[in-house]
Nucleic acid binder design. Structure first.
Lengths: 220, 220
DNA sequence: GATCGTCTCCCCCGTGCGGGGGAGGTCCGT
DNA sequence: ACGGACCTCCCCCGCACGGGGGAGACGATC
């Protein structure tokens, strides 16, 4: 069962490039293309791709809105990989907050592109330190990835937030976390809000789910 | 940091047996003993054991009441492993519903006893099919475990409750679950309450954690 | 026929939770 | 010296959540 991918980008050239790179892999199959975010919903419903490679900036509906729409409108939505031309793209961060699972610079090397698709297809989130570190270790730091990682930095949890999330994932209430960390409950609420916002979670339960699904905490 | 255990049984012989078996393990330490449930609370408060091996039938206060008392009266209560002589013991089921984390037949082999203590110490619940299956697979089914498993069956989630838990573990709210299952929100609340009670969870977040930790749902 | 478990729905009620603000402190890099 | 993260704490507010009851309908079991 190959990983199925839907390409969404207003530039045909980019779509062709992504298609060439991805189709070179035996375990990846491009099942469709779209030139604008507005066309994504019906395509996702029909093609049921595992991953949507979504450009951020598009004429009618941008990648942020399209990401929100897919996650809101589709049952069992695909993983969404945000694609961007510019480093330090504000919109990328917005898309990640909207629920996208990873991001990708268009100038990335083919191996990086393939790797990113496989990662999100496996359910890996690219929001967490562990993932970032792995990417950095795997590809080294040629200098080109720095800006990309900087973007991610902004989505990353602070140390305190990570600590709070770990305790959330152990089932502690805000009051219990406060007692554990010897701070006020208002402080904990503040950190929890930060975690929810950065993870795109509506409540602590969703945050804990994300923690498990991303490997931030492991069962057992 | 060894697993610390408090033994609660009215028969000194049983206590000695459990102590011998458990102390043979380098990572398990018996920190105290009690001859009746009525003595448990202060001992738990003072010794702070990780696990309480609790007999069900005792003269003054039985294991069910003692379990309830510990969970109600002590902050950060220990894991409670219910110990019983008889298979098909009605009281075991009551204790599990009262919040105990696992059960153990006195005739179990040493390896099983040690395994059960380690399991509950790790936070594993023994309420779930996955765990039961794992135990059964690990030790085979000598026929003696059948009655015990039957007891566990009664603590198992109903089909509907399991369905609700799966949706909870996907981050859905009660209203969303109601819409998905085409029932009223009150109905969902009812099932959620059932899940929480059977899992000994305080809120949906803890229930979802248990679902992950027990293998009821898997990440990815 | 009676009993039991399950699923369904309803009531009241308290509160933990999360959103929306703001604000003062430290530390660090510039 | 200044901005910018980060951590800390505070306010108000609405609501989903969870506990405590109860109750009717259905099917299976006895």
């Amino acid at each position: 069962m190959p990983v199925t991918v839907l390409l969404v980008d207003d530039e045909p050239l980019v779509r062709a490039g992504l298609r060439a790179v991805l189709e070179a892999q035996p375990d990846i199959e491009v099942v469709g293309e779209a030139a604008d975010g507005a066309a994504v919903i019906p395509l996702v419903r029909r093609l049921r791709p595992d991953v949507v490679a979504m450009d951020v900036r598009m004429p009618l509906m941008d990648g942020i809105e399209a990401t929100r729409a897919v996650l809101r409108m589709v049952d069992g939505p695909p993983r969404i990989l945000v694609v961007t031309t510019f480093e330090n793209d504000e919109y990328v961060y917005e898309a990640l907050r909207a629920g996208a699972d990873g991001f990708l610079l268009k100038r990335a090397r083919p191996a990086e592109i393939v790797h990113a698709v496989r990662l999100v297809a496996e359910g890996e989130s690219l929001l967490f330190p562990a993932s970032v570190r792995r990417l950095a270790a795997e590809y080294g730091d040629g200098g080109g990835n720095r800006a990309a990682r900087d973007t991610l930095e902004r989505a990353r949890l602070t140390e305190r937030e990570a600590e709070v999330l770990r305790l959330m994932a152990r089932g502690l209430s805000n009051a219990e976390i406060a007692a554990r960390l010897v701070v006020g409950t208002e402080t904990v609420k503040s950190h929890v809000s930060g975690v929810l916002a950065k993870l795109g979670a509506r409540d602590r339960t969703q945050a804990v789910i994300t923690a498990y699904e991303s490997g931030f905490v492991a069962p057992g």
